[in-house]
Design a protein around this nucleic acid. Structure first.
Lengths: 339, 339
DNA sequence: TTGAAAGCGCTAACAT
DNA sequence: ATGTTAGCGCTTTCAA
């Protein structure tokens, strides 16, 4: 491997001088600068960033931990984070926990051993507490994305899950639905709790009773529990609309409904949180509360870098990004609408 | 920061002994092993992998370079690569070149300076040659994904673009189409050339003339050139079917067609390479030649690690993964079908 | 079974 | 303007 000493020798200077040329620090005569630069170019020398991090005590690497790389919400978010990191001169180490605390733990250890300068952290859920405390114990700056974790105070970028859920509920109620079910994520996850709260408020506002059997709790990955959905739907007073807690849940729900011979929206309306990606956008079907995924990533990243570079206020910041109701075809008035 | 010396001191041993415990090398009495391990756990010590890489001359980090993080083909591929890397104990540094040689160059420099152990490399195109040669010059193992680059001999995982294109063409011909246009990627990209070759062969087989004005060349990102598409379509003998070189191109084409008031497939049939993601799968619309994206990533990663760990044959390996025709709704017989 | 010394590639602090 | 020294945290000899 070619090192700074190889350059130094060939340019007849000390390693220190080469270092100064590379990092544009200290005073160097333009003559030597040019000579050194030429040798660098000639030999195609690229400094070893591991050696650099060792002495600098910083790596220039940030980590983005997401929970589901198959969810367009997170890949779009990743794109935003990457753009922002690149812009500010940081490299980005991606990690995907798959909504799994075990995987999350192993990634946290990896990023700790890499000594990343900071972490954009979308927690799997409340039990991510340990992992976040590990970061805090080592004073590694982080910004929590999307989901909050009780017991952790930090910079946060989140959506407004309660309000978004309420919007969707109001829309369904306006369409005339009175029997609305919720297929939620895990109660372990803050956004699921807030969406359920929005759901409940929506029912209340409309003077509807909350029926516990109308609430299913699963996780945020594609929903596959046919049985549970069947028992929700069967019987004389099944729901006329389903509020799915996110896009992947909605897709699973719709797939099961169709398999069962039920049409969306003719037999059952479906709405959800989070939009799908460009690929489905030429025929947008789902009525959703869309969150600005790219913004989540880009603003989170900027917040993180500001924190690292001491450009942020001392107190932890919280940014709530609103969601937007996008009305499309997956929800209509129920057959038995009261008008 | 807590170092190996902190552990050593507290456990009343030398740093060397701690190192041996951590890496399970050398002989250690189980008594000291336990004592050391206890201190490690107690202090939550995690070794600094930068220091480690410096002396070991390996990082345990692999890089995956893709060209479009918004394309479900690549995110699915990324998932496969990540799973395989994780399984074999490597960490994965993602990078997204956005089909841009400049960005690709800057990422190659970054991964060179990180001294990654190997690279899964989806090249932006033929001009990635420089970047790949840089890797070769430093003997960094890599596997080329998806697209080949003239001038580079290496392990390769690719699809069968020519054959896949031919399948799509035969299908369109069988439906009765005789005026078929191609909206291709850049001629700079091997898969685009091969898809064009398959297109040409398809025409020939059917005894159809190739009309140069029926071939558009753009890039693999979402197609937006309304003008070009309009001039392709306008006139009395416009195409009855369009072969879009990949999924994102197809989406762009369909969007423009609809904007223009043309229905798919009633007015124009559209087929393409690469499937969409789960999000669109509940209402699959596009007729595609689907490539096994997850396999691209997983097998490529295994191939790379085998190469790094000297478990691969000396000669570069090439794996061609076939694509699969998935017939759906976006293509039908033309109105003026000859039967 | 354990440890001392040297060095991986780089830069901060301090000469010169 | 340039160079020397020391040390970042770790592991590989090699010696005890």
């Amino acid at each position: 491997m070619i090192t700074i000493y190889d350059i130094a020798k060939k340019a007849n200077v000390s390693a220190m001088t080469v270092s100064k040329v590379i990092n544009q620090t200290g005073r160097i005569s333009s003559a030597t600068r040019e000579r050194v630069q030429q040798v660098i170019d000639e030999l195609g020398y690229i400094p070893n960033s591991n050696a650099r991090s060792l002495v600098l005590q910083r790596t220039g690497i940030l980590s983005l931990l997401i929970t589901d790389i198959t969810n367009p919400f997170y890949t779009t978010l990743a794109r935003g984070a990457e753009d922002a990191a690149h812009e500010r001169g940081y490299r980005l180490l991606f990690a995907n926990s798959d909504e799994d605390y075990g995987k999350e733990k192993s990634y946290v250890e990896a990023l700790l051993s890499t000594r990343v300068d900071g972490v954009l952290f979308a927690p799997a859920g409340d039990r991510s507490l340990d992992h976040l405390q590990q970061l805090q114990a080592r004073s590694i700056p982080f910004v929590i994305l999307d989901r909050t974790v009780p017991g952790i105070t930090s910079d946060v970028i989140a959506g407004d899950s309660r309000e978004g859920a309420l919007q969707l509920m109001r829309y369904l109620v306006k369409l005339g639905h009175r029997r609305i079910a919720l297929v939620n994520g895990s109660p372990d996850v803050s956004t699921a709790r807030l969406r359920e709260q929005g759901y409940m408020e929506g029912l209340q506002e409309a003077g509807l009773d909350a029926d516990p059997s109308f609430v299913l709790r699963t996780d945020y990955r594609e929903f596959r529990d046919e049985q549970a959905l069947h028992s929700l739907l069967d019987g004389p007073d099944g729901p006329t609309a389903i509020f799915a807690a996110n896009n992947l849940v909605a897709i699973g729900v719709i797939r099961i409904l169709r398999k069962k011979g039920l049409a969306v929206p003719d037999d059952v309306s479906v709405v959800c949180f989070d939009d799908l990606d460009a690929a489905s956008a030429f025929d947008p079907f789902l009525t959703v509360a869309a969150q600005p995924a790219y913004e989540f990533g880009a603003r989170g990243m900027r917040m993180l870098i500001d924190r690292i570079e001491d450009k942020a206020p001392a107190e932890p910041q919280t940014v709530i990004l609103p969601s937007e109701l996008r009305i499309r075809a997956s929800a209509t008035s129920p057959r038995s609408a009261p008008w």
